[in-house]
Design a protein around this nucleic acid. Structure first.
Lengths: 205, 205
DNA sequence: TTCATGCCTGACACTGAGTATCACGTTATG
DNA sequence: CATAACGTGATACTCAGTGTCAGGCATGAA
C-alpha cells in the first residue's frame, strides 16, 4: 500500500525518513512552519542539511508525505465497490476508506490538519496532491459510466466534488477534536448534493 | 470591481502593472514559466528587478492577478440572484457571471489557462485563491439557508463543488479552443449533481 | 581476511525567490 | 521655489532547492 520496502536498504531509508519527519513535525508545531529552516531541522535531527534534503524534496513534503497513498487508497476502494452502485455511492464508500486509512492515529492526524490550515503553503501543496489523484479516480468512474454520462466533464466534476468533501469533512472533524463520527459527516456532506436545497428561511419541513 | 483607481498615481501604477504583466506573459509563454527569472522579466520590461518585484509579490501573481476579482464577482452575483432560488441555481448563475467576467478576451484567457495547467506552481496558487473565495460564498449561501441545511458542512460542500465546476468547465472550454459554449458546459457540469448517476453500461434510457 | 562495489553522508558551491534598506531623482502641492 | 511624498535602482541578505565531489561504511566475492 505505502510502497512496501523490499531490501534492507529500503527498510532503513524508510525508518530514517519517518524519524526525520517526526523530529521535524515537533519543530513545526512548536515554532510554526515558516519559521523553521532546513538548517534548523537538520540540526534538530542530528544530520546535515544535505542529508535532510535528500529525504524530502521540499519542506511541504516533510509534513504531507503521509497523504501520498490516499490517491491509491481511493482508487482501489472504487474498484472494490460494487460496480452496479451509482457514482455517488461508490465515491462515498471510497472516501470512507480514505478516512479510515488516515485516522489510524487520531491525535496525530488532527495535529497535522491544524498545522496544514494554519499554513497556506501546506494547504496549497495538499490541494496539488489532491489534483494529482483526480485523474485516477475519473478513470475508474468512466470505466463503468453509462452512455448518458458520456461527457468527461461529469466524471471530472464528481471526482473533484468528492475530494472536496473529504477535506471539508476532515476539517470539521478535526475542529471538533475528532469527536464527531466521520461516517456521519460524510453522509451530511454528500447530502449537499442530493437534497433539493431550497432557499426560503421559512422553508416547510 | 477591480479596485478602481482614484488618484493619478493609482492610475499610473495600474497601467505600469498591466504593461509589466503583458511583457512578462509573453516571456512565460515563449520560454516556460519556471525557466524565466525575475531578472529576465525586469530586463525584458526595461526596469530594475527591485521595481518589478514591487509590482508583483510573487512570480505566480504576475500571471494570476487577473483572477483576483473573481471571488467578489461570484459573491456579488449570488446577492443579485433571486434569493428564492435553490443553492444550485444561484451558484450556477453566479458561475456564469464569473465566466462572463473572465471571457472578455477569449484568446488571452485560453492562453493563460494553457500556461496554468502546464505549470504546477500556477495551478497550486490558483487553487489557493479559489480557497480564499470560498468562505465569502459560503456566507452568502448561509444567509438564506433553510434550517434543514443547518450544518455548515453543506454550504461548504456546495461552494467548493461549484468552484471546482468553474475550473473544470474552463479547462474543457480552453481545450476546445473556446468553441464550446460556456453556458452549455456549466449545465453539463451541474448535471453531474442532479442526475441519478446509475452505473450499468447498458443503462435504460 | 582482503579487496572491490555501491550506497550514504557531509561539505561546498551555486542559482533564484523574496525581503529589507538606503540614497537619489521626480513629481505633486502650498 | 521649497518641501514633502513617492517611485526607482542599487545593494545586501536569508533561505529553498540543485548539483557535485570525496570519504566512510556496508555488502559480497575471492
Amino acid at each position: 500500500m505505502s510502497a512496501a520496502p523490499v531490501g534492507t536498504r529500503e527498510i532503513g531509508r524508510h525508518a530514517v525518513r519517518a524519524e526525520l519527519a517526526r523530529v521535524a513535525f515537533n519543530r513545526f508545531c512548536l515554532t510554526g512552519f515558516n519559521q523553521v529552516t532546513f538548517a534548523d531541522l537538520a540540526e534538530a535531527a542530528g544530520v546535515s542539511r544535505s542529508t535532510f534534503l535528500r529525504y524530502f524534496g521540499t519542506k511541504e513534503d516533510v509534513v504531507l508525505f503521509v497523504f501520498d497513498p490516499v490517491g491509491d487508497v481511493i482508487a482501489d476502494a472504487l474498484d472494490a465497490e460494487r460496480a452496479d452502485e451509482d457514482d455517488w455511492s461508490r465515491l462515498r464508500g471510497a472516501l470512507e476508506s480514505a478516512a479510515t486509512f488516515l485516522v489510524r492515529d487520531v491525535q496525530h492526524l488532527a495535529t497535522i490538519l491544524d498545522l496544514v490550515d494554519q499554513t497556506p503553503a501546506l494547504c496549497a501543496r495538499l490541494r496539488e496532491k489532491q489534483t494529482e489523484w483526480r485523474p485516477k479516480i475519473v478513470a475508474r468512474l468512466q470505466e463503468t459510466a453509462s452512455p448518458a454520462d458520456g461527457s468527461a466533464v461529469v466524471a471530472d466534476v464528481r471526482a473533484a466534488a468528492a475530494l472536496e468533501c473529504l477535506w471539508i469533512v476532515l476539517g470539521h472533524w478535526s475542529a471538533s477534536g475528532g469527536r464527531e463520527d466521520l461516517g456521519d459527516l460524510l453522509d451530511t456532506a454528500f447530502a449537499a448534493f442530493s437534497t433539493p436545497a431550497r432557499a426560503q428561511t421559512g422553508a416547510p419541513l
